[in-house]
Each structure stands twice: as C-alpha cells, then as structure tokens.
Design a protein around this nucleic acid. Structure first.
Lengths: 121, 121
DNA sequence: CGGGATCCCCCCAGATACTG
DNA sequence: CAGTATCTGGGGGGATCCCG
C-alpha cells in the first residue's frame, strides 16, 4: 500500500474502492447530478445545494477537478469574474453508472419500505 | 430532511446518495467483494482484510446487516459459536452494480495513468 | 470465537472573516 | 463573484480491555 503512490488520491485495494473514493464526499453526488443536466456556475450550484457552505462547495469541486471528473472555465473578460463547471469526458463516462446507482437506490428504498411496513423479518 | 425519517440510515436528497451511503465505510467495498464470492465467517473475513481491526469489522458488518445487504447465521450447536455472513437477496441485487463500478474504476486508473505519464493536460 | 465498552486522538466540516 | 485562511467542536476510528 506504500508502493503505488499515484498522483491522484488512490492507494486502494480494489478498483471498486477507487470509484467509491471519487464519489465519496458530502455533496459530490448531488453536485454531479446537477452537472449531468447542465453546466453551472459556482453561485448557481450553491443555490441548488441548501445547507452547503461555500467552503465545502470549494473543497468538493476542487477534489472532483483533481480527479478529472469535472473541469472549470474561468471567464475573465469582464469583472466580476465568472467561473463555470462542467463534466469532463471522464466525468461523462461516469453518467451511466451514476444513473444505475440512482435507480438501484430507488428500488432499495421501495423494498425497504415494504418489508419494514409489513414487518415480516 | 426531517420529514422522512425512515428506519434505515437514510435522509438523503437523491437515491444515488442512498446507494453511496450503503457502500460508504472504510472496509465495506472489500467485504462485499469477498462475500460476493462466498459465504465467510467473522475470523475468515478478518484474515482477508489486512489492517482492519475487529472493532471496525464488527461496525461495518452490523451496518451492512442493518441495511439488509448481508445477513448472518449463528451456529450455536457447539462451542465455540461460529457465525457466518452471506449476501441477502437485496445484497445480491447489488452485485451487477458493484461489478460495473469495479470495471469503471479499472478503466479510470488506466486512463489517469496514461494522461499523467504523457502529461497532456 | 465473536463481539461490546471505554478511552483518546485526529481530522472533517461548520462558522466567521478576509481577498483579488 | 469566487473563492481562501483561521479557529473550533464533534465524531470516526485506533488501541486496549472485557464478556458470553
């Protein structure tokens, strides 16, 4: 576990772990849900994430950027500066997986509700 | 976020989050990888997880059990007691997803290695 | 053998203030 | 507008000990 010290934040035991590490973070899943639909600016993202502080948004975005899942464009043509975030190709390749995980989550929630309401155990 | 207070540890904003919460935990991904292959006992699992303490293994297993991803069987027919863990049906339904995530992780690692070694940016 | 209970430390994340 | 810097507390996780 010391041998492989890749540039990114990986050193996991299996590739599955790598995927989870990339997705792990308090707001990353929702951020990705938003960016799957459209490119968004920092302040626009912040509005859609009730309870998320600017500090946290910055941290999560920079990690996703480091992992090359998203990229930002900075428009310095006029003041105030505007930055926008969008999925990279690598990020786009994650979309089908995210949708599958979302669907499984939906199924899971339904199943749990059914079994706990009828209380079979 | 107060309205829905399900029995399980969920209160997330999107189903994707639910899936990630279930999988999130220091050793869960590897535990699931092991249990996908075969049913295993507590001590057997511990051996295949170098660095994992008994405390952590207990915690992770109990969470997976609470979430109804795994189940345990306790054999009290003789001393010492032996318990074994296996995937539930819900856990088995997660297998294709886990394999997809594992495959994406493999692809990701390769891609990152290529781009960073040639340093295209 | 398969866990809990307890203590303790460190890091994550919130609050607040500052900056180009 | 889009962030960073600093301080602070609460919880996750290691180490250790105990129990049925």
């Amino acid at each position: 576990m010391d041998a492989l010290d890749m540039k990114t934040r990986h050193g996991e035991l299996c590739p599955l772990d790598t995927t989870l590490k990339i997705l792990d973070g308090k707001w990353k899943s929702i951020i990705l849900c938003r960016l799957m639909e459209q490119e968004l600016r920092y302040s626009e993202l912040l509005k859609t994430l009730p309870g998320c502080t600017r500090r946290m948004l910055s941290l999560q975005l920079s990690q996703l950027e480091q992992d090359q899942i998203i990229a930002k464009e900075i428009d310095v043509s006029f003041i105030p500066i505007k930055t926008s975030y969008h999925l990279t190709d690598l990020g786009k390749s994650l979309v089908p997986l995210i949708k599958s995980m979302d669907q499984w989550g939906e199924m899971y929630i339904k199943t749990i509700q059914d079994t706990t309401s009828s209380e079979i155990i």
